[in-house]
Design a protein around this nucleic acid. Structure first.
Lengths: 228, 228
DNA sequence: ACCTGAACACCGTTCAAGT
DNA sequence: ACCTGAACACCGTTCAAGT
């Protein structure tokens, strides 16, 4: 009852625990992902890292899916939106996508997260917005621009995903290149006749794809009926 | 000890349980996925459906990841490899991809499985082989063909994925279209100025993407340095 | 308003023990 | 050789109870 007793009881063994917040949860989740990859992204592990129980997180985050979306957008803040006035519209697009690729590539699990999570947030919006602006400069608008932006991001994400999962497992895991293993030449002549070409530089492949897509949508533009 | 007793004891309450096999496991897994989507694809659920324990499956299947690859290839057996001699090489490619798209679209969870599982097996090989053959007819060879085939399949898979997940949740979940919600026009002018165009027909979008990619890789062919 | 612990209903994988 | 049950080390989410 004495003041003395009380002050001893209320003394904390360590500085006051950081109060929870969406930001702290997202940052902790991201740190865990840096260390453990996508499997670090679990409610229970994040909670443990914050010295609390998993149920506490639900005050700030609706569920794991929503948390994943937050983590994705949080990481995308490091994607650099170019502002080189001398560059062509294509170069601008290549630059953002390259920055996006690098960001995904640097954090294990990030590419997988990007591939399976619908991005919601200001950073992903900024990237999309920039790509649409550049496409507009290249006279690509409307559905072509919208679908094209989608395709460009999808392509970049998937190249990053293949690249990182290859690194992880110490194995080659391109969609196409996996077919090459354990196949008989006689049964799949086309596949086996091009084994060499498959294993060429990854950055070359990345550039090639962006260029191919940009070429394709430039040629098509709007309204053109496909496959005639 | 008597013969009589023994025969009664050995009498089974139902016809002898089907012996396990890789095929039966894969087929059961696929059936479960048809009913429950991707969450039906668990060792424990498959085992229960086969009236055994999860550990029994490990005799025939190395782990869940391998089982997923088997299920994917099993489903891909229904993809029709075209043999229309009068069709152009592009039409042939469009046809396989359309069949592939339909197969993914019809089984819930299949598109997600295809997006996150490296396909190994004769059916996926047959599809790749056919696409490479058609690209060869269109004078697209070497790395262009390999990367192009990859890109075409990736694109098709992802359109199917977006389409099915949209259906599942009764929501629109195209990469691009999700940005449109809860965005202020003033902050992202490009995005908000094209809201209408985004929500157009999905089959049109599918065709557009294939054509764009084919155009792009046709123009590039081999050796061309991108972005000059 | 926020946090907690316990509970519920699940996971994949391993392993000793059985046939 | 194959199957089994139990165990291990996890999951996401909910909820009554506390402050």
């Amino acid at each position: 009852m004495s003041n003395h007793d009380k002050s001893i009881i209320s003394r904390r063994s360590r500085p006051a625990k950081d109060p929870l917040s969406k930001d702290i949860i997202v940052q902790t989740a991201f740190k865990l992902m840096m260390d453990e990859g996508i499997s670090g992204l679990s409610m229970r592990k994040i909670a443990k890292a914050l010295d609390t129980g998993a149920s506490s997180l639900y005050v700030y985050v609706k569920n794991l899916q929503e948390l994943r979306a937050y983590v994705l957008d949080y990481r995308l803040k490091d994607v650099k939106i170019p502002n080189n006035k001398n560059a062509s519209w294509k170069e601008g697009i290549f630059e953002v996508l390259h920055s996006y690729y690098t960001v995904l590539y640097q954090s294990p699990g990030m590419a997988e997260l990007a591939l399976t999570t619908v991005p919601v947030g200001s950073h992903s919006s900024a990237i999309i917005e920039y790509i649409l602006k550049q496409l507009d400069l290249g006279s690509i608008r409307s559905t072509s621009a919208a679908w094209g932006a989608d395709l460009l991001l999808l392509y970049t994400t998937s190249v990053a995903y293949e690249q990182t999962s290859r690194n992880q497992k110490g194995q080659d895991s391109t969609l196409i290149s996996t077919y090459l293993h354990s196949l008989e030449g006689s049964q799949y002549p086309m596949i086996s006749s091009m084994k060499k070409e498959i294993f060429s530089g990854e950055s070359e492949r990345f550039q090639w794809g962006i260029e191919a897509v940009l070429q394709g949508i430039s040629v098509l533009k709007d309204g053109k009926k496909p496959l005639n």
